[in-house]
Design a binder for these strands. Structure first.
Lengths: 343, 343
DNA sequence: TTGTAAGCGTTATCAC
DNA sequence: GTGATAACGCTTACAA
């Protein structure tokens, strides 16, 4: 039942009546080879049904034709809620789609690498050992040492999202600040007189940028100070923040929330409090996640060109792989406002 | 700048003052080894910062600790709309999440393999060569020869979704027929007197099962015959089908559509025709895709336990890898109705 | 232009 | 128990 041993270079060489080296040359398209033999070899190849063994090849060339998509999984709970949340959000799929749009035409494969806080060392080791030619890194928890480790070890890598701390690694990111400005302008245009803000964790760069961008723009609209509360990006924390905001500043008539999930929580609390959205309080989220669409009323939010960003990340990485001397760069994308029902 | 050559088994052996073989034994946890040396070796390991080279290991063991997620990409357009559609639908992420929930604890990695109609042979070759230990296969176009090729070559594989033609490969699937029955019951319960159906491509198993299940159940509700039209799973084809249905059978007051995308098209046509949904015509889709939620009114549809199915697929594959004599099986899951606004 | 042979870093089969 | 040594399948100097 088990199928036979596969044909190797040696076998092809025997059939073609040439040396292993010649077959290798033909297959790898190296010039210096007699056209006669060239043809001979190829016919031997499909006579034998030969397929090159990538493992063996990679072992010597130190190139795998694969890049790793590293998902840094901070949670360590036993019944890991991270995965279901992370993967079911369109975010993940959009990133993969964007990466693939560049990688596939280039004949490069994608290997998914989830890594917990403990796995960093092993990951770096594996990458150095040639498990993959490079890495695209996603979803970094605050203070994650991974970017630094990658840089220190000279591993070609590109981040999606600015690293928490400055590190000599290329990345693509959204202009979170500009996105927040969009939200601020929208609320201002609606005539909000008492806008507030619900921020995310203070150690996540995206979160910080969103809040500071919002504050800055609101200041330009004459709101020097804003009632604020913070959460940790979960729905429940958003609800909690909204409750606290409502009790300390009942006059609030607009709120910018640093991500959609928290905005969802805020929406629920507003409804329970008898505030109509958007008539009494306008709400704007961030991310344009599936949650935004699912919300009733549908959530007005800020959207990334995530596919484009991911595609560019892939391009950056491939360039770097081709030419290791390529300089570290960053590319920042512009967000757009998705007007739905809440603002 | 380039970091040094990595330590190898040999280096560790030298530091520990033992042979390469012994180090290998210690690292792979083989019993017959003096506790003294055991400790000695481990200290040499982290003194040198040694990390095993998986490539080299796989080359000899013929085991990679990786499974391939094969996405059979039928479309061959230049500006591939398949990818953006496929990856942005939560379907993909849910599958990955389900697989990972089993694979990750087992220490198995996932490699994404997109393969067009041309790539089948190479894919099988790569798999036989040990690129991956096995494969989970997704999204099969009709008449795809891949399952047969996998079976013929003795490649451990599990399909998500019944193969178009019978093949000795394990698979997990949804009881599409039961899902359709749910839809039929719902329409019947609403008191629909003239239910109709929009089917998908006749060569896609899931599509066929859905329609026959619907017909069967409707027959039990006294509707021996149903107006029907068919599409190809795209929104536009759904619209077209609805138009034809409406003109041939204006009395229609309920319609079951074989997937959400087509249902979306149907919804649009109904609105244009001035029919209220669900008051005049009730609509039920299938898949619970993101489109269902995005629809206005939100689409009532039938949902898969896709994460569970995928997790089980991973389990099946792992079992098979452990014990190649495992019998081919299939596991069928029960769908549920997601009542939203259209029925 | 082609062949010979030396690795790439492991594991596995032997003797000792 | 432990250590040589031969694979694993390929690429690549170096020779011819």
């Amino acid at each position: 039942m088990q199928s036979q041993r596969l044909p190797t270079l040696e076998d092809v060489a025997r059939v073609a009546g040439v040396s292993r080296a010649t077959v290798s040359r033909v297959i790898n398209g190296i010039r210096n080879v007699d056209p006669q033999l060239h043809e001979l070899v190829w016919s031997a190849v499909d006579q034998t049904g030969y397929v090159p063994n990538k493992l063996a090849r990679s072992l010597v060339t130190r190139r795998t034709g694969t890049v790793a998509l590293v998902v840094s999984d901070s949670e360590t709970h036993d019944d890991d809620p991270f995965m279901s949340r992370f993967f079911s959000d369109p975010y993940f799929g959009r990133v993969v789609g964007g990466l693939m749009s560049v990688l596939r035409p280039a004949g490069v494969q994608l290997a998914l690498q989830m890594v917990g806080a403990d796995g960093h060392k092993r990951l770096v080791g594996d990458l150095r050992n040639g498990q993959a030619d490079g890495a695209v890194v996603l979803s970094l928890p605050a203070h994650d040492p991974l970017p630094g480790m990658l840089a220190d070890n000279g591993i070609p890598a590109v981040l999606i999202g600015r690293p928490p701390e400055p590190v000599p690694i290329s990345y693509v990111d959204l202009d979170n600040s500009a996105g927040a400005a969009l939200a601020a302008d929208r609320l201002a245009a609606r005539g909000c007189t008492c806008p507030a803000v619900i921020s995310g964790p203070p150690d996540v760069p995206a979160s910080v940028d969103r809040i500071s961008g919002f504050r800055h723009t609101m200041a330009r609209h004459g709101h020097a100070w804003l009632p604020s509360a913070s959460g940790n990006f979960t729905q429940e924390s958003g609800a909690e923040a909204m409750r606290s905001l409502l009790s300390s500043h009942p006059a609030i008539d607009g709120v910018f929330v640093a991500n959609d999930l928290m905005a969802l929580g805020a929406l629920l609390v507003l409804r329970d409090a008898g505030r109509r959205v958007p008539e009494d309080v306008a709400v704007i989220g961030f991310d344009d996640s599936s949650a935004a669409l699912a919300a009733r009323p549908a959530l007005t939010t800020v959207r990334h060109p995530l596919e484009d960003m991911s595609a560019e990340a892939a391009r950056l990485l491939l360039t770097r792989l081709d030419d290791p001397t390529t300089r570290v760069t960053s590319i920042i994308y512009e967000p757009t406002l998705v007007p739905r029902q809440t603002a």
